[in-house]
Amino acid sequence: MNNAILKCENLTKKFGPVTAVDGVTLSIPRGRIVGLLGPNASGKTTLLKLCNRLLTPTAGQVSIAGHAPGVETKKLVSYLPEKHYLNEWMRAADLIEFFGDFYPDFNRERAYRMLEKLALNPRDRLKTMSRGTKEKIQLSLVMSREAPLYLLDEPIGGVDPAARDYILNIILENYNPRSTILLSTHLIADIERILDHIIFIREGRVVLNKTVDEIRAESGQSVDSLFREVFKC
């Protein structure tokens, strides 16, 4: 049978005259950590939103484990959006209960363990926390689900280098060999060691789809420097 957890066929999204995602065809297997890499405004966030049905395609289709995005796929996909959407008045512990009520695959124990590592008091309210801390909490919540597919939009965007290591660690520690993580970023050097597969997108189109070691063996350079070469301004 088909082992792909995520498939896009000729996926296209237009906003009026602007084509944000342009005929993307992809198939991502289970058990991978995949980097969706591209410069600003290349269509990364739009692609992830299409996978979550926050947007509907202009043409083409997405399927997750064979289902079109919708109610069914919300059970399968753990999504970290680019925006903060958590209620500011809530305490960290409230959020854990809230997520636990929503998602049957949410592992409360794992979430509390992560808070502990962050030296966060579960009684603290979100509004008293810095932006970086909120980002870490949001990612911890998303990674506390035991989902077959994680879609992470810029998980390491706004945090300092030490926190970046913490986040990469979270991803590696909670990674299970049956799950796939697709994450978008433009900070490649920090992250390429943990990726299996790289997808470069530019102006809504896939321009490269290879493994990290293929790229290094073929070009003799890191993914980061290849990226700088491909997307040179």
Binding site: N169, L172, Y175
Partner: peptide, 11 residues
């Protein structure tokens, strides 16, 4: 080992 080396477990 993967965590120690900070690399992908598949690698």
């Amino acid at each position: 080992l993967a965590r120690e080396a900070a690399v992908n477990p598949n690698t």
